[in-house]
């Protein structure tokens, strides 16, 4: 996936606002990349542009060489607020994209089972979102996005709404899922520790108008421990880049 010179200007209350300014970086197949930056740096706008939910004013986003022109099942999206369809059960949510693809009922059922096993919700298929905890809801959201076998999994501060313990657990689970599915993951967060814990590379953004300050390679073996010296060093490095 390539982000090439993406800029975004939109009409604000007091005139045009430059949200993004010439953002460029690349993501290799199977990589786990985090986008980190302070609030207001435009990372959510960038997230939406990459996901095809918004257009860029200038520049392109290329997925496997093809420009992104709109949302599609190839760009799996997981939001912070889950946005599960409350009128559908867990199975119903995960099956939604598969229905759109025209998959036969039997095949769908198998695929949904597979996805639920993957995220550890094997027994909860018939529950409804109103009965689920935040962590469970996010797992459903991940399963829903992965069910349609996207080329890229985009996540916008997905664990921002859960407590610290659940977040740690979800980190581990996400890394497991990533290992098993070998997906390319683009993960947006403002939490530097989270980024260092998860990412192969970290794209550090400047505050608005957002652009790429630097891309940091995180060369730490997984599983990573935040008490590790090298871990702390990377954290410092990224924080410094943000503060500059």
């Amino acid at each position: 996936m390539t982000v090439a010179g993406v800029s975004k200007t939109y009409e604000g209350d007091a005139g045009p606002v430059r949200a993004l300014d010439d953002v460029s970086f690349e993501v290799e197949d199977g990589e786990f990349v985090c986008i980190v930056g302070p609030s207001g740096c435009g990372k959510t706008t960038l997230f939406r542009i990459i996901g095809g939910l918004e257009g860029a004013t200038n520049g392109d986003v290329l997925l496997s060489g093809e420009p992104v022109t709109g949302p599609s099942p190839d760009l799996g999206i997981v939001f912070q607020e889950y946005h599960l369809f409350p009128w559908r059960s867990v199975r119903g949510n995960v099956a939604f994209g598969l229905e759109q693809l025209g998959m036969a009922a039997g095949e769908r059922r198998d695929r949904v089972d597979e996805m639920l096993e993957l995220v550890g919700l094997g027994g909860s298929g018939d529950s409804y979102p109103s009965r689920l905890s935040g962590g469970m809801k996010q797992r459903v959201a991940i399963a829903r996005a992965l069910a349609v076998d996207p080329e890229l999994l985009l996540m916008d501060e997905p664990f921002g709404s859960v407590d610290a313990q659940t977040r740690d657990m979800l980190h581990r689970e996400l890394l497991d899922v990533w290992g098993e599915t070998e997906k390319t993951v683009l993960f947006v967060t403002h939490d530097v520790e989270e980024a260092v814990k998860l990412a192969d590379r970290i794209v550090v953004m400047t505050p608005g108008p957002g652009s790429v300050r630097e891309v940091v390679d995180v060369e730490l073996a997984r599983p990573r421990s935040r008490t590790d010296e090298a871990f702390a060093a990377y954290q410092e490095q990224v924080l410094d880049l943000i503060r500059e």
């Binding site: 949302p71 599609s72 099942p73 999206i77 946005h83 939604f96 994209g97 759109q100 996005a145």
Partner: peptide, 14 residues
């Protein structure tokens, strides 16, 4: 109806 529901629907192929 929240715009995000529509975003999710579109990104899942509707």
């Amino acid at each position: 109806v929240s715009d995000e529901f529509l975003d999710v629907g579109r990104s899942l192929g509707v």
